[in-house]
Amino acid sequence: MFAAAAIAVLITMALALLRALRGPTVYDRILALNMFGTKTVLLIAVAGFLTGRPEWLDLALLYALIGFVLRNTKYRGLGADEGGTP
């Protein structure tokens, strides 16, 4: 059950990574990084239950918070770029 979830999350991570690498616009990359961040949170949560270490949820919580801060920074980065470079 958890293993299937982990594999699904990994596949989603691969797709997000592909988008971050290919671009082509800044928005694609930002969305890809956002998605990658949430998938990391999920992967750690799933792996925590998979290995019987549910306290990893603490870690997942931190990642979620950091992800929110990053997201705002990226809007800032975009603002400085005035729409961003292609």
Partner: peptide, 29 residues
């Protein structure tokens, strides 16, 4: 594109943190 590079280094860190967690080095992660 340095902006893309910044995004990708963020992903790099998330991946390393995931690996550290799997190695049970929770504080490092």
């Amino acid at each position: 594109d340095l902006f893309a590079a910044a995004m990708l280094t963020g992903i790099f860190s998330l991946l390393s943190a995931g690996l550290f967690t799997l190695l049970d080095a929770v504080d490092v992660a």
